[in-house]
C-alpha cells in the first residue's frame, strides 16, 4: 500500500518534472539538451549495472526499487525516469558520490566520499542509473 503511494507520488513528480523540462523521453524541442544527446557506450552501461546490483559493490537494491530487478528494499525512492528527473547528470553523480551533502541526515551510503566505490565505478553507475 505504502509502496503504491510512494510510487504514485514519484510518478506525479516525474510527470511534472518531465513537463517542466519539456522532455518526456523524446526531446520535443528542436534543440535537445546537450546531456540527452550524448550517446553512451552500452558496454559502460552494462558495467555500471553490474556494479550497481552487486551486493558487495553498490548494492543499490538494498534500498531502491529498480524495475525488473529482484528483492528491492524501499528505504530510498524508486529509481525511475532518471533522465527526466536529473537532466543534469552531474547532480545525479553528486547524489551517489555523497548523498549527505544535500541531506546530512540521509541514510544513503556516501559511496564516493567514503571510498566504497571508486570514481570510475561511480561514473559507470551514473551512466546506468541515467538509463532507468
Amino acid at each position: 500500500m505504502k509502496k503504491t503511494v510512494r510510487l504514485v507520488s514519484t510518478l506525479v513528480i516525474i510527470a511534472s518534472a518531465a513537463w517542466l523540462t519539456g522532455c518526456s523521453g523524446k526531446p520535443t524541442t528542436k534543440e535537445a539538451p546537450k546531456a540527452m544527446a550524448a550517446q553512451v557506450d552500452p558496454a559502460v552501461v552494462a558495467e555500471g549495472k553490474a556494479i550497481a546490483v552487486d551486493r558487495k559493490k553498490g548494492n543499490c537494491l538494498a534500498c531502491h526499487l529498480i524495475e525488473d530487478e529482484p528483492t528491492p528494499g524501499n528505504v530510498g525512492p524508486p529509481l525511475l525516469a532518471m533522465k527526466a528527473r536529473y537532466p543534469d547528470k552531474a547532480k545525479l553523480r553528486t547524489q551517489i558520490w555523497d548523498a549527505t551533502a544535500a541531506n546530512p541526515e540521509s541514510a544513503m551510503v556516501p559511496f564516493g566520499r567514503l571510498q566504497v566505490l571508486s570514481d570510475a565505478e561511480i561514473d559507470k553507475i551514473v551512466e546506468y542509473i541515467w538509463t532507468l
Binding site: 537494491l61 538494498a62 534500498c63 528483492t71 528491492p72 528494499g73 524501499n74 528505504v75 541526515e105 541514510a107
Partner: peptide, 8 residues
Amino acid sequence: QNAGLRVR
C-alpha cells in the same frame, strides 16, 4: 529513521 522500511 527507517524502521518499518525494507533493506532488501
